[in-house]
Design a protein around this nucleic acid. Structure first.
Lengths: 204, 204
DNA sequence: ACCTGAACACCGTTCAAGT
DNA sequence: ACCTGAACACCGTTCAAGT
């Protein structure tokens, strides 16, 4: 009972997710098939159904890990950032854009699921948690007097749209190549202007 | 020769695209199959291959019609708008968001193709044409002195990201429901602040 | 509990053949 | 030119049966 080996090498569920992400990254979403996944891992084609009731369930779970990692990266990036709203905004933007470019296909998956009327509850919750994390940043800035006043949704929607749009465009290679690297500083400056207090106060 | 009827009812290619968009809208992208399309139109399952070399080619063509219609809507909306940058920006934003919410799945398709290394040249061109159209708006604003100076890419990237992000989020129902309708005005105001001239001059 | 093997209904793609 | 019908290799899903 001690060295109890299952048929498979321990945790098929985790192995499926890992391998699925690899092939998603390497061959794109249309090339991802349950049967090939099973073949790659040396199990029968019916084995995955023990852990995911169907293909969509696996995709949902994969998207969920994406949101989890995005949250982590964001938190880590913010932990190392300074106190000012400008610095925290920049840290958040960098974290998002880095994640988006490094996981373009996964990001697509994370957001493409919403159209599904019967989308996973868990997944919607994860997406909203991520939105919240960004809006909290704005609230912080408001408390520091570095962001204009007003209901969080009204003030935050522009900022969130900008971040999401830039990350998405960067991920899908839809940005002019020269803008990518230095573009982030310009983007953050633009965001700051957009949500600056109505009557800017002096820094000291 | 005059009332020459083909096997099919005239233009299978166009019929395939029309029907494909319908099922994309109604049943989502994964439910779209060439064989079902052919069945719906009363032709054999091999008939589509005369007009599209494979499924991807049909999807590319469909995405292309999306960009064409987006361009049209945008142009029409701008034609009815006033002269000021603020009004033109608002018209553009409304056109984009309207299109995005009315054609959510199609918009997804239009942008999800980029990851493909061998993506259709035509499609990339259409996407860039659309980006250009938005950037032209910024250039116009610069000429009128209502947008800050600087290279178009630097100034325009934020605006374009904001528009694209908002439209995408709206399309995927990722926006808090209360923001959608009146949110557009707030969004445009945010954009205008972000690209206002460094030293705002008086209106008269 | 976890997996197998066979079965079913569906795909996309190709190709000789028909009109 | 445009389409058919059969064939091929692949899917996702289900389910009795094995260990």
């Amino acid at each position: 009972m001690h060295t109890r080996r299952r048929y498979h090498h321990g945790d098929l569920r985790a192995a499926l997710l890992t391998r699925a992400e690899e092939t998603l990254r390497e061959k794109g979403p249309t090339a991802l098939s349950l049967r090939e996944l099973a073949r790659d891992l040396g199990v029968s084609h019916a084995a995955p159904s023990r852990h995911f009731k169907d293909k969509q369930a696996l995709l949902d779970a994969l998207a969920l890990t994406g949101f989890d990692r995005l949250d982590e990266r964001m938190s880590a990036s913010l932990k190392e950032a300074g106190e000012s709203f400008a610095e925290r905004m920049k840290a958040a933007a960098r974290a998002y854009v880095d994640f988006a470019t490094a996981n373009a296909e996964l990001l697509d998956l994370m957001y493409s699921i919403k159209h599904d009327p019967k989308a996973s509850e868990e997944l919607i919750a994860a997406s909203q948690r991520w939105t919240r994390q960004t809006l909290n940043l704005i609230a912080e800035g408001q408390r520091r007097g570095e962001v204009r006043e007003g209901p969080l949704e009204r003030v935050g929607i522009g900022v969130f749209s900008t971040l999401h749009g830039y990350a998405t465009l960067a991920a899908s290679d839809s940005l002019p190549p020269d803008v990518r690297a230095e573009g982030l500083d310009e983007l953050v400056a633009y965001i700051l202007r957009g949500c600056a207090p109505e009557k800017p106060r002096q820094t000291a």
